[in-house]
């Protein structure tokens, strides 16, 4: 809700505080598979860190790469796209398109020395509640290790 200002002083102000860094993460989860798996994780009371902010989309194929770029520029420390496993897409082929788009996006980021490992794509089917929880744990942990997205607090972006 209220954004905590983290005592930023200047363009290159270091924000990493004494406490452990808590990454802000965005997840785009498809309605049919990954969102269902997220519910399943809840029903089976599997625990994962609360850093992920889920956004439900009908299909992972609806995730325009500009959404991911916008999230990163807005300071997301990581973005994860969750879709139906290849071949399983409710919309026939949405996840195949996602795969190409995200592969291209990651290449752009990588070539420019922007950290493409902040963008994850994972296929999590409706029955894989455990995989969902595990993936969220791994993702949060990996992003925590990376530290803040360097774009996070730059006013000059």
């Amino acid at each position: 809700m209220e954004d905590k200002k983290e005592g930023i002083t200047g363009e290159y102000g270091e924000t990493a505080g004494k406490e452990e860094f808590e990454p802000s993460l965005v997840g785009f989860f498809c309605n049919w598979c990954t969102s269902t798996a997220a519910d399943l994780a809840g029903t089976t009371r599997l625990q994962y860190p609360p850093n992920i902010r889920p956004i439900r989309v009908m299909c992972s194929g609806a995730v325009d790469p500009v959404y991911v770029l916008r999230a990163l520029c807005s300071g997301a420390d990581g973005v994860i796209i969750g879709g139906c496993p290849p071949g399983d897409c409710h919309y026939i082929s949405g996840n195949y398109k996602t795969r190409r788009r995200m592969a291209a996006l990651k290449t752009i980021l990588k070539t420019l020395g922007l950290d493409d490992d902040r963008v994850w794509v994972r296929w999590i089917s409706a029955s894989e509640g455990a995989k969902f929880a595990r993936t969220m744990r791994e993702f949060t942990e990996a992003m925590r290790k990376k530290g803040p997205n360097p774009l996070k607090n730059r006013w000059s972006i």
Partner: peptide, 27 residues
């Protein structure tokens, strides 16, 4: 946005513009 980062550059979104343009036409 200004409050979030202390300041925000205007016009906004130049990096986003270039990254998105790359995404649209670089292939």
């Amino acid at each position: 946005w200004a409050e979030k980062r202390g300041a925000v550059r205007l016009p906004a979104d130049s990096l986003l513009f270039h990254l998105t343009r790359l995404n649209h036409m670089a292939t």
